[in-house]
Amino acid sequence: MTATPTSLRERKKAKTRAAIREHAMRLFEEQGYASTTVDQIAEAAEVSPSTFFRYFPAKEDVILIDDYDPMLVEAIRAMPPEVPPIEAVRRALRDVFYNLAPEVWESERRRQRLFSEVPELRMRAMNQMAQALDLIAEMIAERSGLPVGDIRVRAMSGAIGGVVLALLPPGRITGRSSLGPADFEQLIEGLDLLQKGLPLAQ
Rank of each mutant, 00 (worst) to 15 (best):
E22S: 14
H23Y: 15
H23K: 15
H23C: 12
H23P: 08
H23A: 13
A24T: 09
A24D: 03
M25Q: 13
M25E: 09
R26I: 04
L27M: 03
L27T: 02
E29N: 08
E30A: 01
E30Q: 06
Q31G: 02
Y33Q: 01
Y33P: 00
A34F: 10
A34G: 08
A34Y: 12
A34P: 06
S35F: 12
S35K: 14
S35D: 15
T36I: 07
T37G: 03
T37P: 01
V38C: 06
D39W: 03
Q40E: 13
Q40W: 11
I41D: 02
A42S: 04
E43W: 08
E43S: 10
A44R: 02
A44W: 05
A44E: 01
A44D: 05
A45Y: 01
A45S: 04
A45C: 08
E46H: 13
E46W: 12
E46R: 09
E46C: 09
E46M: 14
V47T: 11
S48G: 10
S48F: 12
S48M: 11
P49Q: 04
P49K: 07
S50C: 11
S50Y: 14
T51V: 11
T51P: 02
F52D: 03
F53S: 05
R54G: 10
Y55Q: 06
F56T: 08
F56W: 08
F56D: 03
P57R: 06
P57H: 07
A58H: 14
A58P: 08
K59C: 02
K59R: 09
K59T: 06
E60T: 12
E60I: 07
E60L: 07
E60D: 15
D61T: 04
D61F: 05
D61W: 05
D61R: 03
V62G: 04
V62M: 00
V62D: 01
V62R: 00
I63L: 06
I65W: 11
D67I: 06
D67Q: 12
Y68Q: 14
Y68E: 15
Y68C: 11
Y68T: 11
Y68M: 11
D69C: 10
P70S: 15
P70Y: 12
P70R: 11
P70M: 13
P70D: 09
M71Q: 15
L72R: 07
L72S: 08
L72K: 05
V73E: 08
V73T: 13
V73D: 07
A75V: 10
I76Y: 13
I76C: 13
